[in-house]
Design a protein around this nucleic acid. Structure first.
Lengths: 187, 187
DNA sequence: ATAGTTTTTTATCATTTGTTAAATGAATTA
DNA sequence: TAATTCATTTAACAAATGATAAAAAACTAT
């Protein structure tokens, strides 16, 4: 729990009262490797803070799975699509390793944001960072081919490389397993 | 100016006082087609609300230009990278048509957000929407080939198709002009 | 209208990535 | 350990996209 508030305060300092109220809606959960993060309802609208392990935010297109992003320990995530839209989200959140995480209700969090400006500011800065992250991902996909993207991944996330399967990485890079295996072989 | 506040209130209603203070930092500008949006300093840290025209948020990789996103009339944009990071941003904002827009200082805006919760909420929801937008773009690039992405673009933004050059569209799709011309020919 | 410039098309060939299938290797369980 | 399943590699061919160059078309300014 300390980890979570350290994470928050690093992004944007929270009021004491806000912290206390936020902590009161946190719930600790865990899932096994390959299990989806489903705490209560299958389409729960929640935030998740990864305490230990790795999860992926992924979706299916035409039988193939794609991964939007990996989330390691000490990162916060949320399927914004399912939280903000009425349709069902196309995303799933699945553990890549045995994972422990805190969850808290999206709606309760937004309610707290109404009364705690500092929480709203944190929320806004969190979204800004997530947005920057996504834009960086887009630039990379647009300007680099699969080989370069693979090499960039190795450079940026060497620790993840050991813990993610080839197939999972290819789903993130947007190429097939076979292509990635070939790229790897050519080095 | 009315347009701008209609835009804001649709995303999240603003306090009257917040609106007044925000309106006091708005400046109306215009640029000609193909000109970059540079109001004062070349790396101004500002938001832009497009009143008329179209701009693109673009960047250069290895001699080729890529476009992150087009912004039509009645949309708000900001080069978050240049505003939130100390390094110089790789992005440029360039008009595709003669364009009129309001600009306002990023820092003054953030200052206003400190005192006006409703403005902060608006800001947060704006970032959330931008983020969703970027995620949708990533899914599409990951799961669809250039032909399908081109067809999706036609479906989603038929009005833009008439106003954007082939080259500009190919920079958005992440393929070469020549490839796009070929795709078009095969229909 | 004309000349000059820019954009788009067409064509050819090279490279990258996809598809399929089979072989190997690694992990899991009976 | 053997048997089974799952993940990775290899290979051969197909399809998509890139690179380059040249032709055609569209646009601009005089």
């Amino acid at each position: 729990m300390i980890d979570f508030f350290e994470f928050c305060n690093k992004i944007s300092p929270l009021d004491n009262i806000a912290s206390v109220e936020l902590s009161s809606i946190l719930k600790l959960n865990s899932v096994k490797k390959n299990e989806p993060i489903v705490t209560r309802s299958p389409h729960a609208r929640e935030f998740y803070f990864i305490k230990k392990g790795i999860v992926k935010l992924c979706f299916n297109g035409d039988g193939t799975e794609f991964t939007m992003r990996f989330f390691e320990a000490h990162t916060l995530l949320c399927d914004i699509e399912s939280c903000t839209k009425n349709e069902h989200s196309k995303y799933r959140i699945v553990a890549i390793e045995d994972t422990e995480f805190f969850s808290f209700s999206f709606f309760e969090f937004e309610k707290l944001c109404l009364t705690h400006h500092s929480l709203e500011t944190f929320y806004r800065r969190f979204m800004t960072m997530a947005n920057l992250n996504m834009m960086e991902r887009i630039s990379e996909i647009l300007e680099e081919n699969a080989t370069k993207r693979y090499n960039n991944f190795i450079k940026k996330k060497p620790h993840l490389l050991q813990r993610i399967s080839l197939g999972e990485l290819s789903n993130y890079l947007g190429i097939t397993q076979v292509s990635l295996s070939r790229i790897r072989a050519l080095k």
